[in-house]
């Protein structure tokens, strides 16, 4: 049984590892920390692989464990500082015209400005491509909660100077 399980687990990990690690980075982990979080999550899943295998939606199960592992890691290092890769960047530097700020850097900073709940919602919806229904299941919250977290997150990002400046510059600000 465990041989089958390990083989199946190996296949699953091979397919999903990079995306799970990157999702953890988007959630606010440093790349190194992200690998730890993904590893913790997948190990937990392997312990209960029977449950994962029988879950209606295997990815949703794994995503839930990933989010929980991320939350746990935050809780443990709560007194520590946040990863510097996603350091919030306040206004002036980001708008420095000599600095090449493009959308991909801006989005990392904008994510860092969100609350943990909002950031999780954005990553699940727009990076792991979950539907709102799957998100509600993954996060074990009401579908309405998912909707409101997403819409607040999008509203916050829409007015985040990091992103609006980038958008402005891309649409030819100052022309």
């Amino acid at each position: 049984m465990s041989t089958d399980r390990n083989a199946e687990f190996g296949d699953y990990v091979a397919a999903r590892w990079p995306r799970l690690v990157r999702a953890a980075v988007l959630l606010g982990c440093s790349p190194h920390e992200a690998e730890d979080v993904a590893q913790t999550a997948l190990t937990r899943c392997l312990v209960k692989w029977g449950q994962v295998r029988r879950a209606d939606d295997r990815d949703a199960y794994v995503h839930r464990v990933l989010v929980n592992s991320f939350t746990d890691s935050r809780r443990r290092r709560w007194t520590g500082e946040r990863p510097t890769d996603a350091l919030p960047d306040h206004g002036e530097q980001a708008t420095d015209e000599t600095e090449q700020v493009d959308l991909r850097d801006g989005v990392g900073r904008a994510l860092a400005h969100l609350s943990d709940d909002q950031r999780v919602a954005v990553v699940l919806r727009y990076y792991l491509n979950l539907t709102e229904v799957q998100m509600a299941e993954t996060l074990r919250v009401a579908p309405g909660t998912v909707k409101s977290r997403l819409s607040r997150a999008l509203a916050a990002m829409a007015v985040d100077p990091v992103l609006t400046d980038v958008a402005d510059s891309q649409t030819g600000r100052g022309a």
């Binding site: 687990f9 990157r22 790349p31 590893q39 190990t43 801006g106 989005v107 990553v123």
Partner: peptide, 20 residues
């Protein structure tokens, strides 16, 4: 943007043996 930002992250090989 998320896709591009995430793609910049270099991901090492999955430590399957260690997890197992």
């Amino acid at each position: 943007a998320l896709e591009d930002h995430a793609a910049d992250v270099t991901v090492g090989p999955a430590p399957v043996d260690s997890m197992t």
